[in-house]
């Protein structure tokens, strides 16, 4: 599914948090959103998800203006937001449809993919921050959404687990061709995963630059091409350079 934002902005109590954001994601494209804390990345995702309808501008999915929540959109929030009264397995099956056994099998597969096989019966209070985040990843991926919004999905994970889960995300992407919008603070992650990176900047946040990463997948971490892209992204984030 394609996704298009036209001059999208959001004001809170008259004060703009983010302004004039326009971009288009073709079906199956992975778009990265980068920017300093508080520049409106989560706010943009909430607008795209349909949870927030108070934004200005137009958001189109498959070239049709949307208003409200779409069942085909999945959202992984910045916090895990697990339901504390459900165990890990039931949290992952929460949004699934079908009969019980099917749902549990599917959830079990995703839990195994995020390295949580054997933790199905634990309750959220028994999980570490990184475990909770991995459950949230499994929950978001299990519904195989056509548009997937990810708000710093790997922020609480160690470098090694993070790499494994980035590859899992690409695997899901290969199987389902989901269109993704990924918020991240991690430059390596952005260069490794994204087709295009949109750098936001300022308060209120505005689009500072768009960087296209044309390197074909599978990409190699630590290659010279990746290093060049990372340097470019870092330069665009550098707050000391004056911009017109």
């Amino acid at each position: 599914m394609s996704l298009q934002l036209e001059r999208v902005g959001r004001k809170f109590a008259g004060k703009a948090a983010v302004q004039d954001v326009s971009f288009r994601a073709e079906p199956g494209e992975i778009i990265g959103l980068l920017g300093t804390s508080g520049c409106g990345k989560s706010t943009l995702l909430r607008a795209i998800s349909g949870l927030d309808t108070e934004y200005d501008g137009v958001i189109e999915i498959n070239d049709e203006k949307v208003d409200g929540i779409q069942k085909t959109t999945g959202f992984m929030f910045q916090e895990p937001r697990l339901l504390p009264w459900l165990n890990v397995l039931d949290n992952v099956t929460f949004g699934l449809e079908g009969n019980r056994e099917e749902k549990q099998n599917k959830a079990g597969r995703y839990l195994q993919s995020v390295g949580l096989a054997g933790s199905e019966k634990l309750y959220p209070k028994q999980l570490s921050g990184g475990m909770a985040q991995r459950v949230a990843i499994a929950r978001a991926l299990a519904t195989s959404p056509e548009i997937l919004l990810l708000d710093e999905p790997f922020s609480a994970l160690d470098a090694f687990t993070k790499m494994q889960l980035q590859d899992l995300l690409l695997e899901v992407w290969r199987s389902f061709q989901s269109t993704m919008v990924l918020v991240t603070h991690d430059v390596d992650e952005a260069a490794y995963l994204c087709d295009r990176i949109i750098v936001l900047r300022g308060q209120p946040g505005k689009v500072e630059r768009e960087i296209t990463i044309s390197e074909p997948r599978p990409r190699e971490r630590g290659s010279s091409e990746q290093a060049a892209y990372k340097a470019e992204i870092l330069a665009s984030l550098d707050l000391t350079t004056e911009t017109a």
């Binding site: 099917e102 599917k106 597969r109 995703y110 195994q112 993919s113 995020v114 390295g115 096989a117 991926l141 195989s144 959404p145 056509e146 494994q164 889960l165 590859d167 899992l168 695997e171 899901v172 199987s175 389902f176 061709q177 989901s178």
Partner: peptide, 11 residues
């Protein structure tokens, strides 16, 4: 994308 195809685990 609503099919049940398998995603093999990395773990």
């Amino acid at each position: 994308a609503k099919n049940q195809s398998e995603v093999s685990g990395v773990f």
